[in-house]
Design a protein around this nucleic acid. Structure first.
Lengths: 241, 241
DNA sequence: CGCGATTTGTGCGTGCGTTCACAAACGCAT
DNA sequence: ATGCGTTTGTGAACGCACGCACAAATCGCG
């Protein structure tokens, strides 16, 4: 309501978008793409919320933060909302990624089709071991980590993915930062120290498993003595990252 | 302080441990193992907090929730704290996992050493495609999804990992639940519907990338007009899941 | 043209999580 | 035994996020 629809590519910066909202926007985007494929032109907040697995009030508040484009009594224009969210997330500019560490996980990430279809393309692969260098994976050749700075500059890479062992991760992070990368997705199970202005997100598969293990453990314990029947509060619903 | 040290394997259930705390315990555990390897017998909250990438006050409060085992003026006994956290997370019991979907990502997960070393072992691999069935990966043979229920019961599997395409994920989830699995880690980019009492955690690699993309986009925008110099509030620090 | 049905956008109360700051507890040296 | 420096555990304040509930807005129909 507070924003005109005329400027489609103005990108109003959104400096104070709540972090929790930002984390949900990709989920909304995925749900919207799914709805678009099913032929929906418009969708209500209730419908979209269900598809994204969140509360409808939360969804509406999230969308209102970005000046939102809904019509009362009707709902949201699916195509328009997709465009809007992609603009806010900066996906209009197709971003290129450097993947470092071509082990088990690195191979999988390099071959994972989910990136390209969602606005990213892996532009270069790196490894420190000579054994890996030169290997072809999905149209790309694995290069040695020493070429990182050069390739990052040439390809305009702004995001780095670390899929190395924990022991090597900090050094790789330093090299990425030195090469000009300002966002890092870290799969190594360790804490990275980076200078201000660089964003790091961490994905640790073992951590996710251990959280599940806790709930599993708790369910087993509360089931035995005649306690309340497990009311987890979150069970039965998929939860976000 | 509120708890005796005598009962080491009593496992006091912790029904009301804050979810945010649970999510950080695995990170503390990893940091503790790292410290133990470096020969530390005790560690201060400040030291452990630094190793885990969190605030020290938050760490102390988290540990106090589980009856904590620190000594004022000294710090925490590393070995004892490891035992405690593992007990709370239910890692004393070595948990077995079923992995469904042996594509790109499934291969990587099956071969990923980080699971076994942190209290989990993949007990069975499944796929729906005949082409994959029979393949050997790291000592395990890929079985057809129809054998799921039988194997889950035989191996006592309580956790399922879904690494299939989104389109197949819901059906796999249904089969896992029907087989008795009560915790699911979902890598497919979709929302899963499961009955109450079943926990689902989702990991979506594209979502992580898109969140990074947003910050990247914002940094680029705020850098141009003479605005405040990027004060992200989180930059320079690795953040949790 | 007006009315009812529908759906968005949001003000407000509530609960959770984080952080500060400090008293209590501990070890060690004297 | 006493005092001092260190570190834990926690009370209290703060801020964010969530969800309810409702007013405002829009559409369609009579």
């Amino acid at each position: 309501m507070s924003q005109q629809r005329t400027d489609s590519s103005a990108s109003p910066a959104f400096p104070d978008l709540p972090e929790a909202t930002v984390a949900r926007l990709p989920e909304y985007l995925r749900a919207l793409h799914s709805l678009a494929e099913q032929g929906h032109d418009t969708v209500s907040s209730e419908g979209l919320a269900a598809a994204a697995g969140v509360n409808s009030a939360k969804l509406r508040k999230d969308l209102s933060h970005l000046g939102s484009y809904g019509t009362r009594g009707v709902g949201y224009d699916v195509a328009l909302l997709i465009t809007q969210i992609e603009a806010v997330l900066g996906l209009s500019k197709h971003r290129t990624v450097a993947l470092v560490g071509i082990g088990n996980l690195g191979h999988a990430l390099a071959g994972y089709g989910g990136f390209a279809s969602r606005g990213f393309s892996i532009a270069a692969l790196f490894d420190a071991e000579r054994a890996q260098v030169g290997e072809r994976i999905g149209g790309l050749v694995v290069r040695h980590i020493d070429e990182l700075a050069e390739v990052v500059a040439a390809e305009g890479i702004s995001i780095g993915v670390i899929a190395t062992p924990a022991q090597a991760a900090q050094q790789v992070a330093d090299q990425l930062v030195a090469a000009g990368v300002t966002s890092i997705l870290n799969f190594a199970p360790c804490v990275l120290a980076v200078p201000p202005g660089v964003d790091v997100r961490k994905v640790d598969l073992a951590v996710e498993m251990q959280i599940l293990s806790f709930h599993e453990h708790r369910k087993a314990l509360t089931a035995l003595p005649g306690q309340r029947p497990v009311s987890n509060g979150r069970s039965g619903e998929a939860i976000g990252t």
